[in-house]
Design a binder for these strands. Sequence first.
DNA 1: CAATAAAACGTAAACGTTTACCCTAAAGGT
DNA 2: ACCTTTAGGGTAAACGTTTACGTTTTATTG
Lengths: 334, 334
Amino acid sequence: MNPTIKDVAQKANVSIATVSRVLNNLTGYSDKTKQKVNQAIKELGYQPNAIARGLINKRTQTIGVMFPNVSSAFSSDLLHGIDEFAHDSNYSVVVCNTDNDGKRTMKYLQLLREKQVDGIIFSSEVLNKEYYEVLESMKIPVVLVSSKTDFAKVPYVKVDDYQAVYDAIQYLISKGHRKIAMISGTKSDPIAGTPRVQGYRKALEASGITFDSSRLVYGDFSFESGGRAMEAILRKAGEATAVFAASDEMAIGALSAALKHGLNVPEDISIMGYDDLKLAQMVTPPLTTVRQPLYEMGKIASEKLIRMIETGDIATNKIIAHSIVERQTVRTLT
Amino acid sequence: MNPTIKDVAQKANVSIATVSRVLNNLTGYSDKTKQKVNQAIKELGYQPNAIARGLINKRTQTIGVMFPNVSSAFSSDLLHGIDEFAHDSNYSVVVCNTDNDGKRTMKYLQLLREKQVDGIIFSSEVLNKEYYEVLESMKIPVVLVSSKTDFAKVPYVKVDDYQAVYDAIQYLISKGHRKIAMISGTKSDPIAGTPRVQGYRKALEASGITFDSSRLVYGDFSFESGGRAMEAILRKAGEATAVFAASDEMAIGALSAALKHGLNVPEDISIMGYDDLKLAQMVTPPLTTVRQPLYEMGKIASEKLIRMIETGDIATNKIIAHSIVERQTVRTLT
DNA sequence: CAATAAAACGTAAACGTTTACCCTAAAGGT
DNA sequence: ACCTTTAGGGTAAACGTTTACGTTTTATTG
């Protein structure tokens, strides 16, 4: 058995209340007793028991984080940021990998509730009614990252997806492109799907380019789907001079496919991605992309959540600035 | 306040002991009372409090995982596997990002102890004496993944690094290469450094190829260092027909550098990596590499740890089989 | 039907803390 | 010298469970 506060009290010849007081450095003890207690603590190698502590003050100093897929580069960057701030604030983070599966998600939510986490970060997955209801019944703060919800009141941190791709397309146009194809993510995705194709269409429209549905093809954000989409584009819309993909993974899939077809990038076709994962710098040629600062977003989400936990007030939404990072996959048309 | 077991007891007109019994389905109650209790539970939306539970039975159903860098593809694949098994066994996992910093690591260890985790997975970082001592004083199971320690008794799961690169080099030799350069990871790393260059040297030796120190250059496992290393090789050992890198990231860095120098891969130079991260399939040409099944390793580590927690006996070491996955970066020399 | 065994259930202690409340003794004021 | 204040510190309840032990009720046996 590890020593408890009782052992410390005994060894220092004081009551456990006093030990507790010096531990939490409150007032109510002399300097001498403080010395004695600290001495006893050191000698016994005493460590407070956070569980007992948690039971009484109803705070576990733990937050839960839900990801559709922990091992994606996307999630893990976010996680890194979340963990950073959390640990600095003396919170632990427990991760849950939902696999985008409703049943699993509900089970994890259950688990987090039983474990009495102080707050939850919900990432990259839409917060539907079912989730929202249990979250609400848990009566703990929640923040969404890279996600939104129709149920107001739950703060999010994300970039403006619509605007980001609007800007990206405009960038492509400014480089002289007019025949621009898009590889969208999952069609029905209300955060990374719809708004992004909206941005695409509106940007085109704003430059007087008419939308051509044969240039819009859907993937599911994955590398493989990006490759397939590229094949489709090459088949159906071979005149396109540029393709914008709604994720870096898809963009890289598209890049591979293009290269495999003997096309040179960016000479024969320009490709632009979305996210700015580490991957983007690693491929050849390095990918031009729109950057979401994932690590920072994680940090901010974590910060908001912890503030909510500790102050009780409800956080505001935060739109994070995106930016275009120019590398070598888009060419200027002359 | 969320309802407690007491509320349930009251509503069902039984004692809390009885409620607890049906909750943990032990014996000692009739079917009717079981119904009553379950009814009350449902009506109140009662959820057990795992903290209180943890306090009394000294089990938190939580494991801690230490990574040098959570956001690396390497760690996150591991984490995925760990999380999978853990959650299936009703354990939660709390992540710690040590940044390879001793101070941080110690702080996290402290934290995990206070939080009373039931076990710890220690990943990709050597378990030095300092860490070992606190771990030992915590008296909870630990398993190492992709790591080792001099202090016996702590089980590990990893591939045989020496053998893996031995096989890789042999593979290269079987493809007709004799002038093989190597980009090693951190020189002093006792698990992913030294053994791997040993494998390289021995494999060369076994085929009667004399080791040439100008063909061995050191990086730090990162993409950038791979690029720099490749430059060095091109400068110092330009006759090399193949280069083996001790990580996929470095291999891809080397690939980029080679491509940038106008070399064709694999026509002008062959490149082989180590890890088989998702990245390896994404680059062009796709990387030939030696595969460590990270996800499975995570799962197995998790399984071992949980078995140790629940049975109390100490797990055995596990050497995971590696394999060579042939893609398109090595050419057969004729 | 009495005796006994077994089933059903309740009581209370325990887990390791925090904290409200109480007590004592010394210090300060008159 | 007496009263009041305050610093220092102790006692015990509380947090939400589990579980050993005891008690009552029911079923079983002869």
